[in-house]
Amino acid sequence: MNSAPQSPAAPAARRRMSGIGRVLVAVYGVLALAALGRSFVQIVQKFDEAPLAYALSALAAVVYVIATIALVRSGRGWYRVAWATIVFEFTGVLVVGTLSVVLPGLFPHDTVWSWYGRGYLFIPLVLPVLGMWWLAKHRPAAGTPAETPLAVAAERPAS
């Protein structure tokens, strides 16, 4: 798991998330936990009933976990991962949410994203927007390489 190029002991100032961003991470963490738990129950109990919906739930749960980690980590790589996962979530909630309203027969069983995340207080709909806003405001040092020389030195001790 620890294949990330940066050292875990990076000083707090180097982390992307600080201040109110921490709250965003906390909410992401709770959502990841909730999606994981629910998906675990669905797959153990009744996977045969709706393999598509439940496989999607599991995929969504894993993506939420990755997004949570990516938001905390620093560096350009994780920044891209954060964007990719959050865009994936936003697309998912829009597409699956719309499909579940227009073609309810397609998703007879709930996923995280059914009805735009109604089962989760619409948090899955709101959170990606906040996440993207945060990422856009806190891109790694504009124009130049993502890491400052100091951070590169700290993060790539091998080279």
Partner: peptide, 9 residues
Amino acid sequence: WSTVVLGVA
């Protein structure tokens, strides 16, 4: 913000 996180939890 850690206090807010406590509230979220």
